[in-house]
Amino acid sequence: MTAISQAQKESTGQVQPRRQRRELSDRAILNLFIWPTLILLIAWNLFPLIYSLFLSFTDYSAIANKAPTWVGFQNYADILSDPQMWKYFATTGRYALVTVGMQTILGFSLAVLVQEKFKGSGLVTTLILVPMMLSPVVVGMFWKLMYNPSFGYFNFLLGFRNPSTAPEMLAGRFAGQPVPNLALWAVALVDIWMWTPFVMLLVLSGLKAIPDYLYEAAVIDRASSWFQFWRITVPQVMPLLMIAILFRTIEAFKSFDLVMGLTGGGPGDQTELIAVNLYRQAFLGQWRTGRASALAYIILIVIIAISNLYIRYLNQAKED
């Protein structure tokens, strides 16, 4: 710092203009700093978004050597009138409801338990967070091993010692008989295992942000622990809990990695979540690019609708 200011003092007017010419103006720096990021985001996100909107109105297939033909709302109409598609959406909805619901309850309880510090609580909290940091597809792989009916630990730990009378979680069978949706709940369990820590982390940050003096005031006001929990803790944590629920709901509609690692959509279409089906339509064998684009847009609209509900809630909370 001193070297520069001294140099400036020693050199008189001659140096100053040259320095100014070399020096970028703040305006130029601003553009230089922002545009690379914006251009990349536009090229890799905005452009594909618009391109896929266009494709969704065509019958384009990525492997056919044929220019796309405009078909209007045909793809959308096909998807929305296909009972199979509604089934996939319903499966996804059920999956979202169960996973997000359980994650919310378990994550909230865990956060309440973990929030008070004890010796080693930092380490324990970190260990609880490990599942969400893992690669979903890898998690899917080793849970597949866990679920294996003959040598997996899952049935073993549940107390089923004889493979022939034990549930085959991923095959959706129990004692040889098919059980509807057992596979879906098996996948959901892994999702819950993996992402409950995420909800816990968000709720925990909400709990930690509640100032101590509110509880002190409540204690002075002779509120019982129960009264404090419902009147202070819950309302104060609500916004962050809602963020967690929103993120997880969106993720459920994007859910792909875990299912691919565990079941690939099977058995039959029991675990065919909408994002898995999208992949199947877009790439695997079918290559129905136009129709898949339309489906992607429908998913996007669902996600935007969910986000909107949340934003409306948040704004309302701000209003009051």
């Binding site: 494709l55 969106i250 509609f253 992607a296």
Partner: peptide, 15 residues
């Protein structure tokens, strides 16, 4: 960041 990967994958694949 909120954009589902599946929505942009198809055009990105073509691109």
């Amino acid at each position: 960041r909120m954009l589902p990967a599946v929505v942009v994958t198809i055009p990105l694949f073509l691109m």
